[in-house]
Design a binder for these strands. Structure first.
Lengths: 271, 271
DNA sequence: CAAATAGTGTCTCTAAGACAATATCAC
DNA sequence: GTGATATTGTCTTAGAGACACTATTTG
């Protein structure tokens, strides 16, 4: 019987057919939409960071940040590196949100993508296009079921408007996946990845940690509630939300000022 | 500017360094431990399906079923195929449970593994070793935190006993991952994959669908409860559990017989 | 009947939902 | 004061936990 050492010395992994591996990252933040009138609080929108592809395939289409894994790094390190290179933003945490391995999902060949979701506070959200991408921008995001049970994904950025229609499939273990029915100009199967990411995020909105990820260190209860409502696409009563969340936050000495109405106390996450 | 067609005709994906990709599958079932005394109901144990590796590396060690992806199949299809080939069991559903891409996790080289969890009813759980594996067997499974906050993973099959100690790391978004502290004879980083799978499963035990996956079509309330208690490692009061689950099941005409005590009605999942 | 499990009724407690009421700022 | 949001209090309701009680089988 051969020893393991002998086996390995004769084993050449490159003799076998194998795919390329990429990561794609859904980066979300919450941006306030300033209303015109004085003393009227801003509404929030969920925003997603997309890059304009500078090369083929899907040249000039909008796509998720991401790219090929390099030897010696984990897929999570790959994801962080690609986002940093392409948008100059460095997310602090990654939520795995699926593996995409269908044949023909990429015209360049056999490419398997690992998707991640990340959330950043609206403090430092100024992306800049890096080497690989000609442009990086935030898109306002809307994702809702329409009458026929299909989901409509809408991404807008002033003059640009991207639309996709997706069909939801419920799977075992309470998971869901999406199929693309229509897709205007999102690259690859990225509409599917975004839909799946948002679906995952919504199902986890009851985890308070996710809400804090969207906010700066100090925040008001109203801001926290707006984050919750934006993610879940539901409204809750202020009094009840305060009661439920009070366990997870602690007050600071500071308050807001100059808002044209009663100032709000600032809170921080209770560790 | 080059057209996409020209770009692709000159693009050769094999010019780039790339990893091999595998899937590893945690297959669980619930087996009853028949007690000796008459009219005493059996206890349940969570069991996991392992194969004895027939080749290097980790030859003769026990490992999760799994293997390399082939061109043209998705990673999920790869997982199902490998399990079928190696154990002659065909799971009906897969729960994605993580990507393992650390360098040096496999002595053969750069190999990224996608892990899945699957659950089957105890009806047809007779595996047989296939081509790639010299042997396939069910191991009783125990996974509990010890005094020092580390988790102990114990896999036993009559004469064989596999042990691993793992350290839990809480991550953002409510996810957790594990690091191997000690490992007797489980191949690769499979102790880590198993720990992560069980942790995921426990966190989803409130999803009734998972409980039904462990059971045949018709079952008693007691069996359902034992599945729940075995997964969560907690005990609940019968009356309360019945009330909670009654929404998800519907009664059949049948009952059990010959058990030495009051017969139990058989239920099935309400769709 | 005894032993064992199957199944029901109900009290309590907690958390969520609804909503009224009060507080405090900028103008 | 007015208009806006902040913050508190409390009534109601739904569901989980505890636990006592009844029912039905085999030997």
């Amino acid at each position: 019987m051969d020893s393991e050492k002998e086996f390995l010395s004769e084993y050449n992994i490159e003799d076998f057919d194998r795919p390329s591996v990429t990561s794609d990252i859904v980066i979300l933040t919450m941006r306030s939409q300033k209303e015109c009138s004085y003393r009227h609080d801003p509404n929030n929108r969920l925003s997603i960071l997309l890059i304009k592809r500078g090369q083929h395939p899907y040249k000039d289409c909008w796509a998720l940040p991401g790219g090929f894994i390099s030897r010696g790094e984990t897929i999570e390190e790959c994801a962080l590196r690609e986002v940093k290179e392409e948008t100059n933003i460095l997310p602090s945490a990654l939520l795995p949100t699926g593996v995409y391995s269908e044949d023909n999902r990429d015209p360049r060949g056999w490419i398997i993508s690992n998707a991640f979701t990340s959330v950043i506070s609206s403090e430092n959200i100024n992306p800049k296009g890096g080497d690989d991408a000609s442009d990086a921008r935030w898109f306002d995001l809307s994702f809702e079921a329409n009458d026929s049970g299909e989901y409509m994904l809408l991404l807008t950025n002033s003059d640009i408007k991207l639309v996709a229609v997706l069909k939801e499939t419920k799977r075992s273990f309470g998971t869901t996946s999406f199929e693309i029915v229509e897709n205007s100009s999102l690259a690859f199967d990225h509409a599917k990845i975004i839909a799946s990411s948002l679906s995952t995020l919504r199902s986890r909105a009851d985890n308070p940690q996710i809400l804090f990820d969207f906010l700066p260190e100090k925040f008001t209860f109203a801001e926290l509630q707006r984050v919750y409502e934006t993610i879940t696409n539901e409204t809750v009563l202020t009094a009840n939300f305060r009661r439920k969340m009070s366990v997870y936050v602690e007050p600071t000495e500071e308050t807001t000022t100059g808002a044209g109405h009663r100032p709000a106390q600032l809170f921080r996450q209770r560790k």
